[in-house]
Design a protein around this nucleic acid. Structure first.
Lengths: 331, 331
DNA sequence: TTGAAAGCGCTAACAG
DNA sequence: CTGTTAGCGCTTTCAA
């Protein structure tokens, strides 16, 4: 791998001049520019990002998501990725699998590497800390989920309102006793979606029955456990509101196994409009989140912060939409 | 952020000694070690990986996958990730979305960054080139798919044999006219699965009808197009062999829209045992790939190469298994 | 066993 | 406009 020095020698200029050409500084004589460019081509020279980073700081963003198998985060990642490419930044993707230990390690790594910015979908509201990053002056944007510490930019949807709308939809269709499978209350999306569910019941002057609410892991097996528990109730629900896509797959599997008919014996609506939700029989009603847009929006915010914007922390809300299909119509 | 120099001053030693302690060189006096360790703790010192990389090369692996929304690659990534963590290496994940331009950019980036190793699921057999990496002495392992250039380690399943087994299964169940939806023939998995399908027909002394083979993109819309085209044939198939998970979702959507009954009017078997395949009605028979294991295996191979193993190129084959469900039983 | 010094490849001040 | 010089933070000779 040729270095800047070799290019300089070949072009018979100093390394500084090569550096200027490389960085499009206007103050170089056109004839020298040409000579340098030629030397670069002939040698197939590529500046070392490592060396450059040592001087100027990195051109890398870190995106830390909490579950790579959840299609939602895949879409978020694509949004961030496209934005990063537009901004000529490299993107490092990390997956915590909802594990606080892994998350800590990745945050630490980002701090140590002095990356240019971090987009994070935190594994927990109370325990996830971005202090190390902020202390190091690295801008952080949260996506999808929030944390306790304030002053951090976030991009989310209005989870509570969307959950409420979804639950109201079930009620409007005539379901009477609605169960809720949500995620760990240590995660804001889980908490907010559960609260939105409650809101809807209260709007309808229905009692909120604690045994109808199951807070399980945000993965497939969580949905399985939640559905199993609700079915075993003395008075089981006649409809289910489920708080994320993987959980919905799990819940559906259990309903199938036990021969519970959807939507007649059990109505169903879930967060996350994964591709397969329109393929089951019946097709599943969902809350469709603008996942790609969430990613892009978070990236845009991060970019602003990198460019020196130090205005007050922003909280961007995007709109989710109900995707009504047959799983939520009793007849 | 404190530097090695500040630690050295505080411990009243030279930076060289701090470096030795940092790297567990045996040749440091125990009392000095203690002093240095203390200084490190007190300052909260963390060595800069950037600076270190400039001297010693990076401790980063790059994993380049071709479609982040495909659950299969999510599992592969988890396998690589866990292995990387065990080996105390950072992992950078890149997604090409099957785009050769993006792929080229990521490969270039990996070369320029002089990463410690690359695991790649190439977007194309003929056009993907790892020459830049190999010229730079960076070890490469291919996962899931192969490329034309030889001498590169690969970890895959036996796609041809598995496709053949899947098609044979449909034949054994009595389907007579089997259609094939595969991916772009520029990708080895697509080509091999198509060939395996052909093998099965030939084994059964059936004519291979070219119009029954659709080679589309490896994403959902590819499956939609393939299924639509096959249904419009003068003599449409009575069963479908589909070459990947996203395509299967697309194909199924089209069958639904047109009211084609699975498995009675149309048998179905597909590669990739995605979580939802057991949830549709009927549940879908699949070729289950050991995705996580593929990732781990590729990582293990890369690790060997990093450790100086320069034996002949290896070709690791893992076993896939048929997951038979109701979509492939005509009665 | 330890320290001084050089250098990884690049950029930025400062002269000229 | 250009070159010289210094230095980013670390590791690694080489001497002592």
């Amino acid at each position: 791998m040729p270095t800047i020095k070799e290019v300089a020698e070949r072009a018979a200029v100093s390394p500084a001049t090569v550096s200027r050409v490389l960085n499009d500084r206007a103050t170089v004589d056109p004839s020298l520019v040409r000579r340098v460019r030629r030397a670069i081509d002939e040698l197939g020279y590529q500046p070392s990002r490592t060396a450059r980073a040592l001087r100027t700081g990195s051109r890398v963003w870190t995106l830390i998501i909490s579950d790579i198998r959840n299609v939602f985060f895949g879409e978020v990642a694509r949004g961030v990725e496209d934005a990063a490419q537009d901004a000529n930044l490299a993107l490092v993707l990390c997956n915590t699998d909802e594990d606080l230990g892994k998350e800590r390690a990745y945050l630490e790594l980002a701090a140590v590497e002095r990356v240019a910015g971090v987009i994070l979908s935190p594994a927990s509201w109370a325990e996830t800390s971005v202090d190390r990053l902020r202390a190091a002056g690295i801008p952080v944007v949260l996506v999808d989920r929030e944390i306790m510490a304030d002053g951090v930019d976030t991009v989310t949807i209005d989870n509570r309102a969307s959950a409420r709308a979804a639950t109201q939809h079930l009620l409007a269709r005539g379901y009477q006793r609605i169960g809720c499978i949500s995620g760990p209350p240590t995660v804001t999306t889980a908490r907010d979606r559960r609260d939105g569910y409650r809101d809807a019941l209260q709007d309808a002057s229905l009692r909120v029955d604690a045994e109808l609410i199951r807070e399980e892991g945000f993965k497939m097996d969580g949905g399985e456990r939640g559905a199993a528990a609700l079915l075993e109730l003395a008075e089981p629900p006649d409809a289910l509101f489920v708080a994320n896509g993987p959980q919905c797959a799990g819940a559906l599997r259990v309903l199938r196994e036990r021969g519970v008919q959807v939507p007649t014996s059990m109505g169903l609506i879930s967060f996350d409009d994964e591709p397969w939700t329109s393929l089951t029989t019946p097709a599943i009603s969902t809350v469709a989140q603008p996942a790609y847009a969430l990613g892009r929006e978070a990236a845009a915010l991060l970019h602003q912060r990198m460019s020196g914007d130090d205005g007050p922390p922003r909280r961007v809300l995007l709109n989710a939409t109900l995707q009504i299909r047959s799983s939520s119509s009793p007849e």
